[in-house]
Amino acid sequence: MDKQAVFAQVAELEERIGELYGELGSLKKKIIDLLEENSKLQVENGNLRDRLEGQTSKSGGQQSSVGGFNALTKLYEEGFHICNIHYGSIRTEGDCLFCQSFLQKS
């Protein structure tokens, strides 16, 4: 094997290492974004649980169906899903057909 072939092989290996380093940086950023989102969702979930517990304790532990419907309507108006598919998550794009369907049935 001559010197030129060895240098070419080293250069190719160096280029591949650079590409892998770039991919590693990208994955690291995605992990950081996911961890931040997870933390935010945990706080949001805790707030929703506190709110739900507060509403339940106000009604003596037994919410009427009207009171429950009003609570769900209020949650929906505040920007949260109330449908069984995405319950408790933030509505990011306008109205949800599943939530709307639920509100119309009640």
Score class of each variant (00 low, 15 high):
1 M>C: 09
2 D>Y: 07
3 K>R: 11
4 Q>D: 13
6 V>A: 12
6 V>M: 12
7 F>T: 06
12 E>V: 08
14 E>G: 00
19 E>M: 13
21 Y>G: 09
23 E>F: 14
24 L>F: 06
24 L>Y: 07
24 L>S: 06
24 L>K: 05
26 S>M: 13
28 K>G: 07
29 K>T: 13
29 K>I: 09
30 K>P: 03
30 K>C: 00
31 I>G: 07
35 L>K: 11
36 E>I: 01
37 E>G: 00
38 N>Q: 10
40 K>R: 15
41 L>H: 10
41 L>E: 15
41 L>R: 13
43 V>Y: 01
43 V>H: 03
45 N>V: 09
46 G>T: 04
47 N>P: 05
50 D>Q: 13
52 L>Y: 13
53 E>Y: 13
53 E>R: 09
53 E>P: 03
54 G>D: 15
54 G>I: 04
55 Q>A: 12
56 T>M: 10
56 T>N: 11
58 K>W: 08
60 G>I: 06
61 G>H: 00
62 Q>R: 14
64 S>N: 01
65 S>Q: 05
66 V>S: 10
67 G>R: 08
68 G>R: 09
69 F>G: 15
72 L>W: 07
73 T>P: 03
74 K>L: 11
76 Y>I: 06
77 E>Q: 14
78 E>A: 09
81 H>P: 07
82 I>T: 02
92 T>L: 08
95 D>H: 09
95 D>W: 03
96 C>P: 03
96 C>T: 10
96 C>A: 01
97 L>G: 10
101 S>I: 02
102 F>S: 07
102 F>V: 12
104 Q>V: 14
104 Q>S: 14
